[in-house]
Design a protein around this nucleic acid. Structure first.
Length: 281
DNA sequence: CGCCAGGGTCTCG
DNA sequence: CGAGACCATGGC
């Protein structure tokens, strides 16, 4: 068995591509976060992941160092947009996140920018989570903990109208209406249907959860960014959600979710770099 | 300061 | 099935 830590990774792209929202970069360029309730600190050296804190096995699994990145990138479409994204984001990985944490954060994600999803996530952790020794971030609260929260307290975390959805979903899970861990066995269409049964989970959010927490690497979340990109790929021809989903599945290949993530992160990075720097005084 | 953001849901045709 | 209205909030 080869050492999983010999696999390449772009740590910054992985942690800043809108999959996960609570990690922060330290002054020494290492990154700190929690994997479920385990404090972790990692850094990148020669395009490889190095563990400074936390169980290496748990970290290797969370960062999906076993994903066959060479095979995945070799299966990328040959079009210029996909290839440009591949070049720009080489080494980016799709994490294996805890089911509930991922579900909850993406319920709060609708019509929100990445920066604000992060601030909501941190506020929820601070208000309802548990402090852990060795971490300056609190755990994401369990659904049992959130099921007993008030909607107004959730709104105070900046959730707006999403507060009711998160609360109702937490209550359904607390009452045993769905077991997020047991449904891993379901085939993707059935699993997607199970997830969209939860308040605040439509097809797009379900695809995020499938991709980021259930290892369904062919799931393609179509948000406003990916919608625009698919539009361009189709020569400006728009379509219904179902048509675009079908197009993405065919066009982006067996690892369509990975391609989607590279396209998403690359497009956002480009826009960021186009933002003019603050003028000198 | 107006526009837009990793949308979901309900209604109405 | 498909299009539109509505929903809160903050970054930029």
């Amino acid at each position: 068995m080869t050492n999983p830590f010999s696999a390449q990774i772009d740590l910054k792209a992985t942690l800043q591509s809108g999959q996960v929202f609570h990690w922060h970069q330290n002054a020494d360029n290492s990154w700190s976060g929690l994997i479920a309730e385990m404090p972790a600190r990692v850094f990148e050296k020669d395009r490889r992941l190095v563990v400074a804190q936390g169980d290496p096995g748990v970290i290797a699994r969370h960062f999906a160092l076993d994903h066959p990145l060479d095979q995945i990138t070799a299966a990328f479409p040959r079009d210029p947009m996909s290839q440009a994204a591949l070049t720009a984001c080489e080494g980016m990985r799709i994490l294996r996140q805890p089911h509930w944490e991922c579900t909850a954060t993406f319920i709060t994600s609708s019509m929100k920018q990445v920066a604000h999803i992060r601030s909501m996530s941190l506020a929820i952790r601070e208000r309802f989570g548990r402090r852990v020794e060795g971490s300056n971030v609190s755990t994401y609260p369990s659904f049992d903990a959130l099921a007993g929260a008030s909607e107004s307290a959730l709104r105070a975390c900046g959730l707006g109208y999403r507060a009711g959805n998160l609360l109702q979903t937490a209550q359904i899970l607390a009452e045993g209406g769905l077991n997020l861990d047991a449904i891993v066995k379901q085939k993707t269409p059935m699993l997607r249907k199970s997830l969209t049964g939860l308040p605040g989970v439509g097809v797009k959010v379900a695809n995020c959860i499938l991709l980021f927490a259930y290892e369904r690497l062919d799931a393609v979340p179509i948000d406003t960014w990916i919608h625009r990109i698919l539009l361009t790929m189709r020569g400006g021809r728009d379509g219904t959600a179902a048509q675009l989903a079908r197009y993405a599945r065919r066009r982006l290949g067996p690892y369509a979710g990975y391609v989607q993530q590279y396209l998403f992160h690359h497009a956002r990075s480009l826009k960021q770099s186009k933002t003019p720097v603050a003028k000198k005084s």
